[in-house]
């Protein structure tokens, strides 16, 4: 008996619509965030993450509406990320019904922002997203750096030290994405996930690279993550959340069934 490991489907939204095609055979409008979120809730998702991929300021109101609609009908935790740049952005998202916000680039530009956000709203709702890429050469000790712009731009910041700094600044959770693995369907970067998870006191969500159910299991068992996040494996009907939970349970991982 104890705390369950979490499975979190991640949805990209733009202009109030789910994009990057979700394919459920029996839902009317696969672009409707409410319908998609409800479906994942029914399947047993432990949380839902929305990533706003437009994130330009004039479309902010649409995102707020989307969050409000989902939060009034789906009663599991909701995290929203993408373009979170100010305390005001966070306030509006939380008021609309988001439970947590995920901060990425804005933290790199000004790390104190994380501190201000955590002081104001509490660490429990501040997730820091860490996009990391391996920079060590073969035969060298493993080393990762923070990258921005979808993994194209190096920052020179060491990923492990950054993770620790963000926790010190008040992050309540870390969403760790391997930019080497993202989109490859070849599994998480388990060394990255494990190195961060073993060196911070807050929960870590593993992200980037899930191609099959066993990848999710490995993220928890070998990556030491408290939660695993995936997109395409669920969106395209390859697997349901329930199947993922079953695979976890079969591997001896405690889940909410």
């Amino acid at each position: 008996m104890g705390l369950a490991k979490r499975i979190i489907p991640c949805l990209d939204v733009a202009n109030g619509r789910v994009v990057k095609g979700v394919q459920f055979v029996d839902i009317r409008d696969a672009g409707d965030p409410v319908e998609v979120a409800k479906r994942y809730d029914q399947q047993g998702a432990d949380e839902i993450t929305f990533l706003d991929i437009t994130a330009s300021s004039d479309q902010r109101d649409t995102l707020i509406d989307t969050v409000a609609q989902v939060a009034s009908q789906v009663f599991i935790p909701l995290t929203v990320g993408g373009g979170v740049r100010s305390v005001e952005d966070i306030r509006r998202l939380l008021n609309a019904g988001a439970d947590k916000v995920s901060i990425n680039t804005a933290a790199i530009h000004r790390p104190e922002f994380v501190k201000e956000a955590a002081d104001r709203f509490g660490s429990q709702c501040i997730v820091v997203a860490i996009d990391a890429k391996r920079v060590s050469h073969e035969h060298e000790p493993l080393r990762w750096e923070i990258f921005t712009h979808g993994g194209r731009k190096a920052t020179g910041i060491d990923a492990i030290l950054w993770a620790q700094k963000m926790v010190e600044f008040g992050a309540g959770e870390l969403l760790v994405t391997s930019m080497d693995k993202d989109g490859t369907k070849s599994g998480f970067d388990l060394e990255l996930t494990r190195t961060i998870a073993d060196n911070v006191t807050v929960p870590v969500i593993a992200s980037g690279g899930v191609g099959q159910l066993n990848d999710l299991v490995e993220g928890v068992v070998d990556g030491h993550a408290q939660a695993v996040l995936a997109a395409s494996i669920f969106h395209f009907g390859q697997h349901t959340i329930a199947e993922a939970k079953q695979a976890m349970q079969d591997a001896g991982v405690e889940v909410r069934l």
């Binding site: 309540g172 959770e173 807050v202």
Partner: peptide, 10 residues
């Protein structure tokens, strides 16, 4: 045991 205690527990 990470802190906060975050997630689904019995």
């Amino acid at each position: 045991a990470k802190i906060p205690h975050m997630g689904w527990n019995q």
